[in-house]
């Protein structure tokens, strides 16, 4: 059983929802990433989504765009991100790690080389924002043969017919983009998420995580009852950089772990 499946099975037994924080590898400093991953797990994270920096992150709002730019100032490459996962795995062999990013850095490294390398260092999933299932069939098969789940997105605009196709190909968990917009947008509509979730449930038994627009305990508490996990991205990225101490770059800012702990307790009490 994969780490992702194991984690969701465990959560289901406990009747809890997955808390999935997102941070960009190397932002604001490469020294912070691995300690932050551990601290987020200690604060209640179940799965870590680790952003792979890209020069043209077209699905991101301003907060995460800037995070990509800061990481690239440190010239963080996909290889560097894989090394970070390798270091994380030296102390944590249970928490699933999903890399989230854009197709070109993976394409540049080579899909097969990436899959081998990623599998070796303990990556569990790959979410490629700009690789919809039509273009990603071969890539998904290659990832699967190395034990890596290709995490697919569903959106408010995804038609029922497409939901069915995507659910057939999906592995690990489904990621539902809660709103029409970029990451960190502020117009979350709980009712529309609820409507779409019941449609998705009709076609898949995979866990569904919801992301985009979840920024605090209140929004997480509103969404959690509808799904199996909540993704917190922009709010955490913002918190990490706003409280970053450049004299101690490996020190994880407390407000960031507090944010994750607060969301943990909010979704555990629904």
């Amino acid at each position: 059983m994969s780490r992702i499946a194991k984690r969701f099975a465990q959560l289901q037994r406990q009747q809890r929802k997955a808390l999935v924080p997102y941070l960009v590898a190397g932002d604001p400093d490469p020294a912070l990433t691995v300690p932050a991953m551990h601290a987020l797990v200690a604060a209640g994270a179940d799965i870590i989504e680790l952003g792979v920096p890209f020069s043209d992150p077209m699905a991101e709002g301003p907060v995460i765009q800037l995070a990509h730019e800061r990481a690239l100032l440190h010239a963080i490459s996909l290889r560097d991100v894989l090394s970070m996962v390798e270091r994380f795995r030296q102390e944590d062999s249970d928490t699933p790690v999903v890399l989230m990013g854009y197709a070109n850095p993976v394409e540049a490294l080579g899909y097969e080389r990436f899959a081998e390398h990623a599998s070796r260092v303990g990556v569990d999933g790959l979410l490629t924002v700009d690789l919809p299932p039509e273009e990603g069939v071969e890539t998904s098969a290659m990832m699967a043969s190395h034990g890596i789940d290709s995490i697919l997105l569903l959106a408010p605009t995804t038609t029922e017919e497409r939901i069915r196709t995507i659910c057939e190909q999906a592995r690990g968990y489904l990621y539902y983009v809660s709103l029409k917009g970029v990451t960190g947008a502020g117009h979350l509509d709980v009712q529309s998420v609820s409507d779409k979730m019941s449609l998705i449930r009709r076609y898949s038994t995979l866990p569904v995580a919801v992301g985009f627009g979840i920024k605090d305990a209140t929004t997480a508490r509103a969404i959690a009852p509808l799904c199996d996990g909540v993704v917190v991205g922009s709010a955490l990225v913002d918190c990490l950089v706003a409280n970053f101490d450049d004299k101690h770059p490996a020190k994880v800012p407390e407000p960031a772990t507090e944010l994750v702990a607060a969301i943990r307790s909010a979704i555990d009490t629904v």
Partner: peptide, 20 residues
């Protein structure tokens, strides 16, 4: 039919835009 010119072209966008 899916917008490919040989190995080029295609539709590499986030899911939200596929419908549009």
């Amino acid at each position: 039919s899916r917008g490919h010119f040989g190995p080029y072209g295609g539709r590499f966008v986030s899911e939200t835009l596929i419908y549009a």
